[in-house]
């Protein structure tokens, strides 16, 4: 089956929309664009006029937020709760102090040394969030960063919007390698090339899996890396130390019912380090983990190309 594809850049990353019905691609693309524009306005950390930036700039005050930002904060708190704080939205200050305080193209260009120290982030419990009233109060010293869950949530929202706009068939939305599927898949499922960097061509040599639905996400310390002085830093922050995670796994890919759940699990696995495999098994999530030395582990129902499951 031939599927139609449209690609562009948004949210500082690549966007791919695939549709099984060619005449549905245009409406699906428009719907995804609208969702991403709303996401950018609601919780971009790099836009001074975003809702999230205004919220972070007003500690100690109860702020009523939009339904979309409330959904994103709710998702981030759920992620923190389900990972025992391994994926925590209160890393805003930590990631800013680590040098990721601007669009990444400008972050990578800076080279001056940083004076980093280990400290524990405030923790998601510090956020006073009333889901029903959609009000948020951040105590002084608490800054939110929804990067760990926000992009995956956006992929799920975009896929559902795309399917509704397409009027049937099946759609796949990829936001920088965070993938969400909706509707009726093509025969045999959607083909997904697994890599450490989402910029790798889907036609390159490597492992390919097929899935009919749900989501796939990859977290990796091999991308969005920058050097400050002698220190090589990356974007996955360990809330226990406020520093980039230093566990044994450099890349983790997870398949789940939603892209959000897949991303929560893949990010938590990087942060949890040595305990990641048992933790993923406890959730019965198929996963592929790459150790820092390149050794690959296939967990649960993830297909092992060699035919021998880990």
């Amino acid at each position: 089956m031939t599927v139609a594809l449209e690609s562009w850049k948004a949210l500082g990353t690549s966007v791919h929309v695939l549709a099984t019905q060619a005449d549905g691609l245009g409406p699906a693309t428009s719907a995804v664009s609208e969702v991403l524009a709303d996401v950018d306005t609601a919780y971009s950390r790099f836009r001074g006029d975003s809702e999230l930036s205004r919220l972070n700039a007003n500690p100690g005050r109860s702020v009523r937020v939009s339904p979309l930002l409330a959904t994103a904060i709710d998702a981030a708190q759920r992620a923190a709760r389900l990972t025992d704080g391994a994926v925590d939205p209160t890393i805003g200050q930590a990631i800013r102090v680590a040098g990721y305080d601007d669009d990444f193209s400008r972050v990578a260009a800076q080279a001056g040394p940083l004076n980093l120290r280990a400290w524990r982030v405030p923790g998601w419990q510090a956020i006073r969030f009333d889901r029903r009233a959609r009000t948020v109060l951040l105590p002084a010293g608490v800054e939110l960063d929804l990067g760990s869950t926000g992009k995956a949530l956006a992929a799920d929202l975009a896929a559902r919007a795309a399917l509704a706009a397409a009027g049937g068939g099946g759609v796949l939305v990829s936001l920088g390698g965070d993938i969400a599927m909706a509707g009726t898949p093509p025969s045999g499922g959607w083909r997904i090339h697994i890599a450490e960097d989402s910029r790798v061509s889907p036609d390159a040599d490597g492992e390919v899996i097929c899935l009919p639905s749900g989501g796939v996400a990859t977290s990796s310390t091999m991308v969005r890396r920058w050097t400050r002085g002698a220190a090589v830093l990356h974007h996955i922050i360990d809330p226990q130390t406020s520093l980039p995670a230093t566990g044994p796994f450099r890349t983790v890919t997870v398949a789940a019912a939603t892209c959000l759940d897949a991303n929560i699990a893949s990010t938590a696995a990087i942060v949890r380090g040595a305990g990641a495999i048992d933790w993923l098994l406890s959730w019965r999530l198929p996963a592929r983990l790459v150790e820092n030395d390149g050794t690959i582990h296939y967990i649960g129902r993830w297909p092992d190309p060699s035919g021998v499951a880990a």
Binding site: M1, T2, V3, L5, H16, L18, T20, L172, S174, G177, D178, I179, P185, P186, S187, G188, G189, W190, R191, I192, H193, I194, A195, E196, D197, S198, R199, V200, S201, P202, D203, V208, C210, V216, A217, T218, S220, V223, T251, T253
Partner: peptide, 8 residues
């Protein structure tokens, strides 16, 4: 399957 994309 169809429609390959990259997860990374």
């Amino acid at each position: 399957g169809s429609g390959t994309v990259t997860s990374g």
